[in-house]
Design a protein around this nucleic acid. Structure first.
Length: 581
RNA sequence: GCACCCAUAGCUCAGCUGGAUAGAGCGUCGCCCUCCGAAGGCGAAGGCCUCAGGUUCGAAUCCUGAUGGGUGCGCCA
C-alpha cells in the first residue's frame, strides 16, 4: 500500500466534490496536485500543494481553495487535522491507525511491500557492462555492472518487464588483437620464445587460454600463416574471455538474461537492413566532415564518407557509419543492435555506459529516435570514474606496476555485498571514491555497516522474543494490536517505513537506484535512533518484560522496518546479514 | 573551438524532477558509560546552494550567459 497515493486520491475526491458543489470550476488539470511529506515534520504528516497549483487556472486565491479543501478533508475520519499554511499549503495530520495499517501491510506483504505497478508491465531493456571480450572486468566495469543490475531490479520492482542484456563487442579489430595475443601464448605453451609487440595484450590471464588452445588443437597452428589460425583462434579466445567475464559477473551476483553478439550482425544482412531503414528516411548520404576545430588531428585530410544525418535528431554533427576502406565503423553495428532491440518490441531502452563514452550519447539517441520514429525513448546513463583509495590515500592503477585492480580483486577483498552497496552510494554521474579500508569499517559513517547493523539488531530482538515465548513470526506480529504504538518516536519510524513505496517510484522514475541506498541509510538511522532512546527510556524498548502484548506491537514495528530494509537490499543486490560478528 | 557531466557547511555528499526556516556523515565545541541496550548517545556552532541575469505566487532545482574542474571530439570499440 502506498499511503501517499491513498491520501492523494482522497484529496482529488474532495476537489471533485468541490467542483460538483460549484466551489471550483470544472475541467481543471489535476496532474500537478501532489501529496508529499513536508520537509519539516512539525508541519504535519503530509502536505498538498493543490490550492497553489489550482489557484491560477481556477481564477481563485490559493488560501480560499485551501480553506474549502481543508474543511472537506477534515470531515474524513482518516484526517485528524487539516491546516492551511504559508502561501497555500495544506498540512494534514493522519489518524495513527493509518500508520499501523502500513506496518501491518509490510508484515503481511513482506518482500512485496512497496512494489509498484507504475511500469504497467512495459518492457524495458537494460544494457550494461558490455565490456570488450579481451580481458577480465576492472573496477570501472564493476560500477557499471552494479548500477545496471540494481537499476534493472528497481524497475522490475516498480512494475516493468525487464531484460538484462550484454552487448559483446566481438566484431571489431580488438578481437583480432586478442587472437594474436592468444596465439603468442599458444606458442609459449609449446615452449617457443615470444615477444609481445606493441598492440598486443600481454596480460597473464591469457597464459592459460594459450595452454587450453594447445590442449585443444595440439601443434596444428605452429608455423602456420595467420590466415589459417586467426579465425578459429579468435572464436576460441572470445569464448574464453566471455567465460571469464561471466564468472566475474557471477562473483558480483550479476546474471544477464541475454548476451547479444556484435559478430552476429555481420554477414547476415542485419547491419545493411538497419542502414537501409535509415536510408529510406533520407538520413544516409555521402559527404565530407569538417575537422574538429581547435584540435586538428595531425593526419587530417578531407575524405568522402557514408554519413548518418544524426543532426536531424539532435546530434551536433553527422556521424560516419563507414570507414574510408568501405568497412563499417563501430557505429554501424551499434545502430543495427539498437534497431534489433526496437524490433524486439521494447518500450524503453536504457544503456549504461562508462563516462568515456559520453561523446557517444547524442548519436545513439539520434539513431534510436530515427529508427523508431521517436516512439522508443532511450535513456543513456553514464557512470563516472571510480577513484581508488587505501587508508585515505589515493592510488593509481597501472598495468605495468601490477596495481591494476580487477573486479575480482575488489570482490575478493571486500566481498560482493559491500562492493555493491558502496558503488550505489553515489549517483551515477558523480565520481565515486572507493576506499578499501573505509568500506569495511564498522561505524556510522559506513552506510553498509549501518544498514546491516540495523537489520542485525532487529534480528537479535526477534531471537530474544522467541526465547521469551513471544510468537515473533510475521503473521503473528501482523495480528498484534498495534494501537498501543502512539509514542512520537515510534510513529516517526512508522512514517519512514510508509515512505518506502513512494521512494521506490521516485527512484524508478529517475532511473536512480542510489536513492534506494540513501533511503535505507535514513531508515536505518531512524531505527537506531529509536533503539538508542530505549537506552534512557525503557518504555521505548522493543521487548517489554512481562508484557507480551506490548512487546508484540513494538517488535512488529521493528520487524516492519527490516522488512523494508531487506526489500531495499534485494533491489541493490545485497544480502542482509542477520548477525554482526 | 564544440559537446556532455559536475560545482550545496571546513571535508565527503543527499536534496523527493519548482515548495515552507536547504539536510546527513565526518571534523570542531559542550555534555552523557560503577549498573540496567555505548562496535556509541544527546546538543551546539557552521550556508550569498560558484557568479550575474531571466521565468513565477515560489528557484539549490527550469532558461540564458560567465567562471572553475572532469570527459570526449573522422578512418579505435
Amino acid at each position: 500500500m502506498n499511503l501517499f497515493d491513498d491520501i492523494r486520491a482522497l484529496v482529488l475526491e474532495a476537489l471533485k466534490d468541490m467542483q460538483a458543489a460549484g466551489a471550483l470550476p470544472g475541467g481543471l488539470d489535476m496532474g500537478a496536485v501532489a501529496v508529499e511529506p513536508p520537509r519539516d515534520p512539525a508541519h504535519g504528516d503530509m502536505a498538498t500543494n493543490a490550492a497553489m497549483v489550482l489557484a491560477r487556472p481556477a481564477g481563485l486565491k490559493p488560501r480560499d481553495i485551501a480553506e474549502a479543501l481543508a474543511a472537506r478533508l477534515a470531515a474524513d475520519p482518516r484526517i485528524t487535522s487539516a491546516e492551511v499554511a504559508g502561501p497555500g499549503f495544506l498540512n494534514l495530520r493522519l489518524a495513527p491507525g493509518l500508520w499501523h495499517e502500513v506496518l501491518r501491510a509490510a508484515l503481511v506483504q513482506g518482500a512485496a511491500f512497496g512494489r509498484s505497478d507504475m511500469g504497467q508491465g512495459r518492457r524495458v531493456n537494460v544494457e550494461y557492462v558490455s565490456a570488450n571480450p579481451t580481458g577480465p572486468l576492472h573496477v570501472g566495469h564493476t560500477r557499471g555492472a552494479v548500477f545496471g543490475d540494481a537499476l534493472a531490479s528497481l524497475l522490475a520492482f516498480a512494475g516493468y518487464d525487464v531484460t538484462r542484456e550484454y552487448y559483446i563487442n566481438d566484431g571489431g579489430a580488438q578481437v583480432d588483437v586478442l587472437a594474436r595475443s592468444v596465439y603468442l601464448r599458444y606458442l609459449e605453451a609449446h615452449g617457443r620464445e615470444v615477444a609481445f609487440a606493441e598492440g598486443t595484450y600481454p596480460g597473464d590471464y591469457l597464459i592459460e587460454v594459450g595452454e587450453a588452445l594447445r590442449d585443444k588443437v595440439g601443434d596444428a597452428y605452429l608455423d602456420q600463416p595467420e590466415e589459417v589460425w586467426l579465425g578459429p583462434v579468435r572464436d576460441f579466445a572470445t569464448e574464453a574471455m566471455m567465460a571469464l567475464i561471466r564468472e566475474d559477473l557471477g562473483l558480483l551476483g550479476v546474471h544477464m538474461d541475454h548476451f547479444f553478439s556484435e559478430k552476429s550482425l555481420y554477414g547476415t544482412g542485419l547491419i545493411e537492413r538497419a542502414i537501409d531503414a535509415l536510408r529510406e528516411k533520407g538520413l544516409i548520404y555521402r559527404g565530407v566532415l569538417e575537422p574538429p576545430k581547435g584540435k586538428m588531428p595531425e593526419d587530417w585530410e578531407p575524405r568522402e564518407q557514408t554519413l548518418f544525418r544524426s543532426t536531424a535528431h539532435g546530434d551536433d554533427v553527422d556521424r560516419p557509419i563507414m570507414k574510408s576502406d568501405g568497412s563499417w565503423t563501430y557505429f554501424a553495428p551499434d545502430i543495427a543492435y539498437h534497431y534489433d532491440k526496437i524490433e524486439r518490441g521494447f518500450d524503453l531502452l536504457i544503456d549504461v555506459f562508462g563516462a568515456d563514452h559520453g561523446g557517444y550519447v547524442k548519436r545513439m539517441k539520434a539513431a534510436v529516435s530515427a529508427l523508431s520514429d521517436g516512439r522508443v525513448p532511450v535513456d543513456i546513463k553514464l557512470c563516472q570514474l571510480v577513484r581508488l583509495f587505501r587508508n585515505g590515500a589515493p592510488f593509481k592503477m597501472s598495468k605495468r606496476a601490477g596495481t591494476f585492480i580487477t573486479l575480482r580483486d575488489v570482490v575478493d577483498e571486500v566481498g560482493p555485498d559491500v562492493t555493491r552497496f558502496v558503488m550505489l552510494t553515489r549517483k551515477n554521474d558523480a565520481a565515486l571514491d572507493f576506499d578499501f579500508d573505509k568500506v569495511l569499517e564498522q561505524s556510522r559513517e559506513n552506510p553498509v555497516f549501518y544498514v546491516q547493523y540495523a537489520n542485525a539488531r532487529v534480528n537479535s530482538v526477534l531471537r530474544k522474543a522467541r526465547e521469551a515465548g513471544i510468537a515473533a513470526d510475521d503473521a503473528a506480529l501482523a495480528a498484534a494490536d498495534l494501537s498501543i504504538l502512539t509514542h512520537e518516536a515510534e510513529l516517526t519510524l512508522a512514517r519512514k517505513i510508509a515512505e518506502w513505496p513512494r521512494q521506490v517510484e521516485i527512484a524508478a522514475r529517475a532511473h536512480e537506484p542510489h536513492r534506494v541506498a540513501f533511503y535505507l541509510y535514513d531508515l536505518a538511522s531512524e531505527l537506531h535512533a529509536l533503539w538508542n532512546r530505549g537506552h534512557d527510556e525503557p518504555g521505548l524498548r522493543f521487548l517489554q518484560e512481562g508484557d507480551p502484548a506490548t512487546s508484540a506491537a513494538k517488535i512488529a514495528l521493528a520487524r516492519a522496518a527490516t522488512v523494508v530494509i531487506c526489500a531495499g537490499l534485494a533491489i541493490l543486490g545485497v544480502t542482509p546479514v542477520d548477525e554482526m560478528r
